[in-house]
């Protein structure tokens, strides 16, 4: 069976991660920032899976499961925060919330 070279997997994970990061840094809408964070988490999950397949270790898949639960929890908390934020400020623009500057 033709196997996908491990480099491809890592490159894909890297690209996904950078896309997520760029999203986090450039998006002003908090919902999109949260989504970009999810992409970053999934990129790291992908990297684990690829590595686990290459070195035939089960820990990578265990880590992925953990990242999955982590991401679910993070989304739950994050969405809760976003709702609170919207109630308080009637906006989801992250730039508005800069009152804690030194």
């Amino acid at each position: 069976m033709e196997t996908i070279p491990v480099e491809h997997g890592f490159i894909l994970a890297g690209i996904l991660f950078c896309l997520g990061l760029i999203g986090v840094l450039t998006r002003r809408n908090v919902v999109f920032v949260l989504m970009s964070l999810e992409i970053m988490l999934n990129a790291s999950g992908l990297a684990f899976i690829v590595a686990a397949a290459r070195w035939e270790h089960a820990e990578g898949q265990v880590m992925f499961l953990m990242i999955l639960t982590l991401a679910a929890a993070e989304v739950a908390v994050g969405l809760g925060l976003i709702i609170q934020m919207f109630r308080q400020f009637q906006t989801v623009d992250i730039n508005v919330l800069s009152e804690m500057k030194g």
């Binding site: 920032v33 730039n95 030194g102």
Partner: peptide, 9 residues
């Protein structure tokens, strides 16, 4: 202090 902008991004 200038680096403490309060901006999350």
């Amino acid at each position: 202090v200038k680096s403490q902008t309060g901006s999350l991004r």
